[in-house]
């Protein structure tokens, strides 16, 4: 699927650039895009290492397991197999907590290690949908405070840059519920296809 999406993106870009004579812009975009990707990787390297280090300490000392214990009752319904077997549930919980606190930089390494554990889980339990569910749930954020957005609104001269916060909470909440439902439905549809 990822491959298909990139094929469509790049080939349609080529076609459009050819037709509208924007080949120069296109080649400039390719070069600057590759350079910016490397720059992004380097500029986030420090924070990534820092948080991975903190996570290493948290795992060793037992903070991760403690967080997992607290949020596990909520996650039980979304990730049944991980909850039952205990594989990856600590990482999922830590990722969830980091997202909730607005620590996006910490959420990513937790999320990636959760994916590792969940892909192992999927090999053992092919009927489990926890990895796919986790990936989909991670495309819906639950930011405690949308800093960048508020800053942008303030800079644009908004009368009240904060008045969108409550609607955002409402919308996020509705979207999260909807995402969990969609995952459940997809999992159920696949199961009946396999067994029935």
């Amino acid at each position: 699927m990822i491959g298909k999406i990139f094929c469509i993106l790049t080939s349609s870009s080529f076609a459009f650039a050819l037709v509208s004579g924007k080949m120069n812009e296109l080649s400039a975009a390719v070069l600057s895009g590759a350079a910016d990707a490397a720059a992004l990787c380097i500029s986030t390297l420090g924070v990534m290492c820092l948080w991975s280090g903190v996570i290493g300490v948290f795992d060793g000392v037992g903070v991760t397991a403690l967080i997992a214990k607290v949020v596990r009752p909520i996650l039980k319904y979304i990730y049944p197999t991980a909850h039952k077997t205990g594989v990856g549930i600590d990482e999922i919980a830590a990722n969830f907590a980091a997202n909730l606190l607005g620590l996006g930089n910490a959420a990513l390494p937790f999320g990636l290690s959760a994916m590792e554990k969940l892909s192992e889980l999927e090999k053992k339990y092919p009927d489990s949908h926890d990895m796919l569910t986790f990936a989909v749930m991670n495309t819906v954020p639950f930011q405690a405070f949308p800093t960048t957005l508020i800053a942008l609104r303030e800079a644009a001269g908004s009368q009240n840059p904060y008045d969108i916060i409550l609607p955002i909470y409402l919308c996020s909440f509705a979207t999260i519920i909807f995402a969990a439902l969609v995952c459940r439905l997809c999992a159920a549809a696949k199961k009946t296809k396999r067994h029935g």
Partner: peptide
């Protein structure tokens, strides 16, 4: 963390280049 960061670089390059191409071409 170092391993993860550099491990993600190829994906990032593919992603950012494709998206830039898409917006630069007028698509």
């Amino acid at each position: 963390g170092i391993k993860t960061s550099f491990g993600l670089l190829p994906t990032l390059i593919m992603l950012i280049v494709a998206v830039r191409m898409f917006s630069a071409s007028g698509a």
